[in-house]
């Protein structure tokens, strides 16, 4: 489903940084993949390329048989609707309730009103927030906030979920909760890519692990640990 061919990414500035160096990798539909490695290894750069926030300096990225390089500007929104994002900092709207945060995303994807009304409670129930529908994010714990974010990411039934440090701000127990939800989503057939530092979860889940260091893939194991 995702094919990356000889991709390099260089950021030119006062100091030129080569964030990715000649990376090639394949991710199949329905896979659960951890991207691990120290800060600055290139994990975030890779996720930014996958959501077509940036273009690679060299190489080719194919998603579902379509080249991201050849994606036209007006096609980008529709491409992104097939992806669910989860971030370390949640990216929630603090002045909106849990319900409104998820509904907001559905509206942005131009779902009609009745579908929004129907799907938001269902997806909140899936992540166990059915009792917090009208709460504001600041009234919730970090783990609960991250579950809003997950609900927002899966409400559209995306082909894949990309999570950038989803447990970075959470304690180990809560992290494990979040990872479990991601695993459950993966079991329904959604491809899940998780960039993480969370050694414990990686070791426990025993999924495919791709380790990056200095912009190169240093390890790619089918059932690996951190």
């Amino acid at each position: 489903m995702i094919q990356i061919f000889n991709v390099s990414k260089t950021y030119k500035g006062e100091v030129t940084v080569q964030a990715l160096k000649n990376i090639s990798l394949h991710i199949k539909r329905g896979e659960f993949v951890f991207l691990v490695g120290p800060s600055g290894a290139g994990k975030s750069t890779l996720t930014r390329l996958l959501i077509r926030e940036e273009l690679p300096t060299e190489g080719q990225i194919m998603v579902n048989g379509k080249s991201l390089l050849r994606l036209r500007k007006r096609e980008i929104p529709y491409y992104r609707r097939k992806i669910g994002f989860i971030f370390q900092d949640f990216r929630l709207l603090m002045d909106r309730t849990v319900y409104e945060n998820v509904a907001f995303a559905m509206e942005a994807m131009e779902f009609p009103r009745n579908e929004v009304k129907e799907k938001v409670p269902a997806v909140l129930e899936m992540v166990g927030l059915q009792d917090k529908i009208n709460a504001y994010p600041h009234q919730l714990s970090g783990g609960q906030q991250q579950r809003i974010c997950i609900a927002r990411a899966i409400v559209n039934n995306p082909l894949m979920i990309i999570a950038d440090e989803p447990t970075g701000n959470l304690d180990p127990d809560t992290s494990w909760e979040v990872m479990n939800i991601l695993q459950a989503i993966n079991k329904r057939g959604t491809t899940v890519i998780v960039a993480t530092h969370d050694r414990e979860s990686v070791n426990r889940l025993q999924k495919r692990v791709i380790a990056l260091a200095n912009g190169r893939i240093v390890r790619d194991e089918e059932r690996g640990g951190y």
Partner: peptide, 16 residues
């Protein structure tokens, strides 16, 4: 601007 950022990420079109 925060809302706009999120809208872009979830796939809102420019005109939306």
């Amino acid at each position: 601007r925060r809302e706009i950022g999120i809208m872009k990420l979830v796939g809102a079109t420019d005109w939306y």
